[in-house]
Structures are given as C-alpha cells and as structure tokens.
Amino acid sequence: MNPPRLNRPRLNPLRHPWRTAAEASALIVAVVVAFPLYWMVLGAFKPAGEIESTEPRPWTLAPSLDSFRRVFGQQDFGRYFVNSLVVAGSVVIVSALIAFLAATAVTRFRFRFRTTLLIMFLVAQMVPVEALTIPLFFQMRDFGLLNTLGSLVLPHIAFSLPFAIWMLRGFVKGVPEALEEAAYIDGASRSRFLWQILFPLVLPGLVATSAFSFISAWNDFLFAKSFIISDTSQSTLPMALLVFFKPDEPDWGGVMAASTVMTIPVLVFFVLVQRRLVSGLGGAVKD
C-alpha cells in the first residue's frame, strides 16, 4: 500500500513581491552590466560598413574576422601580450607572497605602532592613483626604471598590497591559535606551520586578492602610458589600442577586436579560480 502523499503548498509569486522585485532588479542590473561587453564583442565581428553606419544595430547578419586579422597582423602584438603576462603575473605572485607574510605578522604578533600601520594601509587605499602618477614618474626616473617593465610592476605591487593585507588579515585571524600551538607541540617549526598549515588555509583569500591584482595590472593604461615613453618593445596590450585609435580616422573595429582579445585571459583566469574566488569572498564577508 502506497503511503499517502503530503500536499505541499506551492509558492505563490504574488505572496512574495519583495523576492520577485529583487530577482527582477538583479536581472536588469545583470543585463545593463553585460551589455557593454556584448557590444564590444559584436563590434569586433561587425564589418567596417556596419560599424561606421549612422544607424547602429545590436546584431549583425554578416560577421567578419577582418578586425581580428588587423589586430593579430599588427607588428609586435605578440610581444605586447607577453609583456602584459609578465607584468600581471609578477604582480600577482609578489603581492600575494608579501601580503600573506604581512597579514600574518600584523595578526599573530604584537608590536608597537601595529594599529598605526593598519591605519596607514587604509589611508594608502584612499589616495587617488592619478595624484601619485607624477611623483611615481620621478621616482622611477631616479631608479632608472623608465621604459622597463619594472616601472609597471613596482607601482601595481604597492597599490595592491593594502587591500590584500586587509583582506588576508581576516583569514589569518580566522585560523585558531590552538591549531598553531598544537603544531608546535608536535614539533613543527614556525616556517613549517606557516607554509604547510597556514598557507593552505588562507589560500582562498589569496586567490581572491590575486584576482583583483591581476585585473588591475592587466588592464592598466595610465602607468603604461606614463612610464613607457620611447621603448615600444616594453609596451603592454592596453598600449596596442592606441595603434587603432587615430584622431582623424579611428578604427573602431580594431579597437573592439583588441579589447576582446584582452578580455579573454581575464575570463580564463576567473574560470580557473572561480571556486576558490567565491569561497574567498564568502570568507571575507563572513569575517
């Protein structure tokens, strides 16, 4: 004999107007945010006639790869791509390493001016980047780093560290001190605890901070324009857009195609780290 079925009440959308309104608002915001990305990709595949038309349409019936051919046919485009990878990769690795050690120090150790140091990290985040461009230019000149990739790596490391340290501080603080004491009782040294126990536990936070560092370094145009003056072999991908952006006759198809190519590594990076990124952001919010 079959057991009687329980009649579960069905959710009526009219009884949850706030939930329906929130979902509709989220959908509208997602469409508004995604539309520029869609228009960029669409412009990359549009033929020149449709791009220059006075009546733009949000579709194309004759997709073309001519814009991508002009992008990949540009001289030194591969070098620009490699330079961007070197700059972004260096910033991610170095800033993550320094931020992890600094966050551990300000969380686990007690020393004078610790609170002052944390407040200085916040103040550094409030200073506009544009206001520091000229002082950084003279500093890079004095260091002899103009027209080198080092002039792009060092400023991005400096600007990504305050946010990364503050974010990782919460992850390090969330690791119980009893775990550290137990590791020392079992004979683990401080360095072993740091790299074999603490580092894997705060790895989601490192991934989250690395994502922001990667995006900032990869899409940078201000420093690349200011510090790479004469040696174009040290330029990065954002500088390649200037080749297509001519004041008298801009090549919008080339600009859109180059921008699309620049976006692909960012999407690949997010796909590779999305699980740890979500858990990392969730841990930061929870803290």
Rank of each mutant, 00 (worst) to 15 (best):
S226K: 13
A44M: 02
G49T: 09
F214A: 12
L237E: 09
A102E: 08
L6G: 06
L198E: 10
A30S: 08
R19A: 12
L145K: 01
L241Q: 10
L168R: 04
A24R: 03
G144Y: 04
G282W: 05
P250W: 09
L11F: 13
A24P: 00
R112D: 05
R15W: 15
M239E: 13
T148P: 00
L136C: 00
M167L: 15
P265Q: 08
Q274N: 06
N83Y: 00
L101G: 01
A240M: 07
I165A: 05
V175E: 10
M140W: 12
R169H: 14
V273W: 00
T232C: 06
S213F: 11
R79V: 07
R192H: 08
A158T: 07
V33H: 05
A48V: 14
A103H: 01
Q74M: 10
I119S: 15
P47A: 03
G144S: 08
V123Q: 01
A21D: 03
V87N: 03
F35S: 11
E177P: 00
P155F: 09
L201N: 05
A284G: 13
M140V: 07
V243K: 13
T133Y: 15
D186P: 03
F121Y: 15
G170Q: 12
R275N: 02
H16K: 08
L149T: 00
G253Y: 14
R190I: 03
L203G: 09
F137L: 13
K246N: 15
N12W: 15
R276I: 04
P238G: 07
L194N: 12
F111G: 02
P200R: 13
I93E: 06
A240D: 04
F199M: 11
V255N: 05
K173M: 12
R114V: 11
H16W: 11
V92S: 13
I165F: 09
V87Y: 09
L11W: 10
L201R: 09
S84Y: 10
V92D: 12
P9A: 15
S233F: 08
P155I: 12
V123C: 01
F81Y: 07
S233W: 02
E249R: 13
V94H: 04
D142I: 03
L101M: 10
P47L: 02
E177D: 09
T20W: 09
P36H: 04
L145I: 03
E23R: 04
R5F: 02
A183Q: 07
T115E: 15
P13K: 03
T104V: 14
P128W: 01
P265Y: 15
D142P: 01
A21L: 10
E130M: 06
L27M: 14
A158G: 04
W252V: 02
L101H: 01
R8P: 00
A257T: 01
R79W: 14
S189A: 06
F45M: 12
P56I: 10
A178S: 13
I228D: 02
G205E: 12
E130Q: 12
M262T: 01
V129Q: 09
V207K: 01
V273E: 00
K46H: 06
T236N: 08
I134V: 09
L61E: 14
M239D: 10
F199Q: 13
P56Q: 03
L154N: 03
G89K: 01
A96I: 04
L117R: 09
L117A: 12
A164T: 04
A62K: 14
T60W: 11
A258S: 06
E50Q: 02
I215E: 07
